[in-house]
């Protein structure tokens, strides 16, 4: 019994200690981000930022386009087939906005970024620790948070916001074009109905979600990348943890923001 209690106690203490550590880490990132933005003339960090946006944002355009198009097409085809049977044809626009703009747009984009960039960031940083590259940065006075983490934090968050916008464009407008081959609709009518359904709060909710998910993914991936200590076998373990935790935190944050939206 005593051993069980000791183990529980140790776990609680470790969790509390890790939470404080993570909070301190997040504070450091925010502090260095403010500095990074203030010192816009600093050349060396912007290269990393541009590379991160290129990898996280630009290289994910293809897969985002396919998923959003497919989702939009399915909603339009199913909605415009089934809903009129109940005299609720106009609901298709509400469903489109709810599913693509408010719910699946941000979360699916986040899932894609977790799978692509979350793993890559955690692995890259883990490797940098094993090969003492982080120590090399420190030896030159280059703050690894400022040089490695902040550009990834900004790059992933910015990319997620833009990819979410891109997801919406493809999901709402691109899917309309595809639907024309299956079930022709009037574009003017479609656009008018869509815009009349879309409210500022929908856009705001989507934007807030993508920003929060971007922050969660970048902070979690870099945090676990830095948790690698001595052996290369820790790298895949930490990458898996980064992915798992990012998924959980994004889903929880999504639920929380949606709840706030309806309260």
């Amino acid at each position: 019994m005593r051993m069980v209690l000791e183990q529980i106690g140790n776990r609680v203490l470790t969790t509390v200690s890790n939470t404080f550590y993570a909070a301190g880490y997040f504070y450091e990132i925010l502090k260095e981000t403010a500095r990074f933005i203030r010192r816009r003339h600093v050349r060396y960090g912007y290269r990393v930022l541009i590379m991160q946006i290129l990898f996280t944002g630009v290289e994910a355009l293809g897969i985002i386009a396919i998923i959003s198009l497919a989702l939009g097409v399915v909603i339009i085809v199913q909605g415009s087939t089934i809903l009129p049977q109940f005299g609720q044809g106009q609901l298709v626009y509400t469903i489109l906005i709810t599913v693509i703009t408010r719910e699946l747009g941000p979360i699916l984009t986040a899932f894609i970024i977790i799978a692509r960039s979350g793993t890559a960031i955690a692995t890259e940083l883990g490797n940098a620790i094993i090969s003492h590259e982080i120590e090399a940065y420190i030896s030159f006075g280059i703050n690894p948070i400022s040089y490695l983490i902040v550009p990834r934090f900004l790059g992933v968050t910015l990319s997620l916001v833009l990819l979410n916008l891109y997801f919406n464009l493809f999901g709402l407008l691109g899917s309309f074009l595809v639907t024309q081959f299956i079930q022709p609709l009037q574009f003017a009518e479609y656009l008018t109905n869509l815009l009349s359904t879309l409210r500022t709060v929908d856009v705001l909710s989507s934007l807030v979600k993508s920003i929060v998910f971007g922050i969660i993914i970048s902070v979690t991936a870099t945090y676990y990348g830095f948790r690698v200590e001595q052996s290369s076998t820790e790298i895949p373990q930490m990458a898996i943890k980064a992915v798992g935790r990012s998924f959980i935190l994004c889903i929880l944050a999504n639920a929380l923001i949606t709840l706030v939206y309806y309260v």
Binding site: H41, R43, N127, E133, F140, G141
Partner: peptide, 28 residues
């Protein structure tokens, strides 16, 4: 600092490995 295992920045070229400390400390 010369590291035992070199600790070069693997995602940068040789040139960038040499130029980064200069760019960082002297900037503009």
């Amino acid at each position: 600092f010369v590291f035992q295992d070199s600790a070069l920045w693997s995602n940068l070229s040789v040139y960038q490995n040499l130029s980064l400390p200069l760019q960082f400390h002297y900037n503009k």
